[in-house]
């Protein structure tokens, strides 16, 4: 029992070490990767623009549910007029960054991991190495940058659509006063709150993109290996996102 626990701990530390070294190697290739704006733009498109529909649909429905539940709760205390500020704060500080990160891991993260894993399985990464082209420069770093740029943008879009969803239910359907809704929101949401959401979006962007490219790059070169890498990307991204969320919240509150 003790030995198993010790081994698990050692494996976890070794795993973090490997990911940290991987990140350092990415940083080493960032300057040359940044000189390829077209490659980076196409990766921002892949990770960001292609995730836009799912982010917008989910943002809308999360906002609408928040409108219904928030109204139901606040009505019990006779303070349904606070729906705007309560929902906006929840979306800006928590739900927006976290749900967008989870969706990002499921859509863009898995796509990144499986794409790089398949490149490994079909010898494309080795072929690049033999052609004296570092795959970190051509494959890993641009995809990492694409994810890091895309997630904060997706988070902000998710929040904006979410607030629209709350308004749709709260104001249009349940009859909260339009003026009160928006003025309460403007009065209570500070720049710091938005910054907290944005910082979370950036941190989650780094974490989820790093996990995706790491899992893809280190995938076993088989169909099963690529499948496992994809699964691990989603699971690890979700767990790390929630742990980081707690840590950032604890530091910033």
């Amino acid at each position: 029992m003790y030995n198993t626990f010790k081994q698990m701990l050692l494996d976890a530390v070794a795993g973090f070490g490997a990911v940290a070294l991987f990140l350092l190697r990415i940083f080493g290739q960032l300057p040359s990767a940044l000189l390829r704006p077209r490659l980076i733009a196409s990766q921002i498109h892949n990770a960001g623009a292609l995730s836009l529909v799912i982010i917008m649909i989910c943002g809308l429905f999360v906002g609408m549910v928040l409108g219904l539940q928030g109204y139901d709760m606040l009505e019990r205390f006779g303070s349904e007029s606070a729906l705007g500020s309560a929902a906006a704060l929840a979306l800006v500080k928590e739900l927006g960054p976290v749900v967008a990160a989870l969706l990002f891991a499921g859509r863009a993260g898995t796509a990144l991991a499986s794409e790089i894993g398949l490149m490994r399985a079909t010898d494309q990464l080795v072929a690049m190495e033999i052609m004296a082209v570092d795959p970190f420069r051509y494959v890993v770093a641009p995809r990492f940058i694409g994810g890091v740029v895309a997630l904060p943008l997706l988070t902000m879009i998710f929040i904006a659509i979410g607030i629209f969803g709350v308004q749709l239910i709260g104001v249009q359907q349940l009859g909260v006063d339009q003026g009160t809704f928006w003025s309460q929101m403007r009065g209570s949401v500070e720049v710091e709150d938005v910054m907290q959401g944005l910082i979370k979006g950036c941190v989650f962007g780094v974490a989820c993109s790093l996990i995706a490219v790491y899992e893809g790059y280190t995938a076993a070169p088989t169909a099963e290996g690529v499948g496992r890498a994809t699964t691990r990307t989603v699971v690890n991204s979700a767990v790390i996102t929630l742990i980081l969320d707690y840590m950032i919240t604890a530091v910033m509150l």
């Binding site: 010898d123 072929a127 004296a132």
Partner: peptide
């Protein structure tokens, strides 16, 4: 090693073309 590899070409069994 990368400088040396610039003088080496390799044909992979499955082609390994960038998809």
């Amino acid at each position: 090693l990368y400088a040396l590899r610039q003088r080496i070409g390799m044909l992979f069994q499955n082609g390994a073309l960038l998809t």
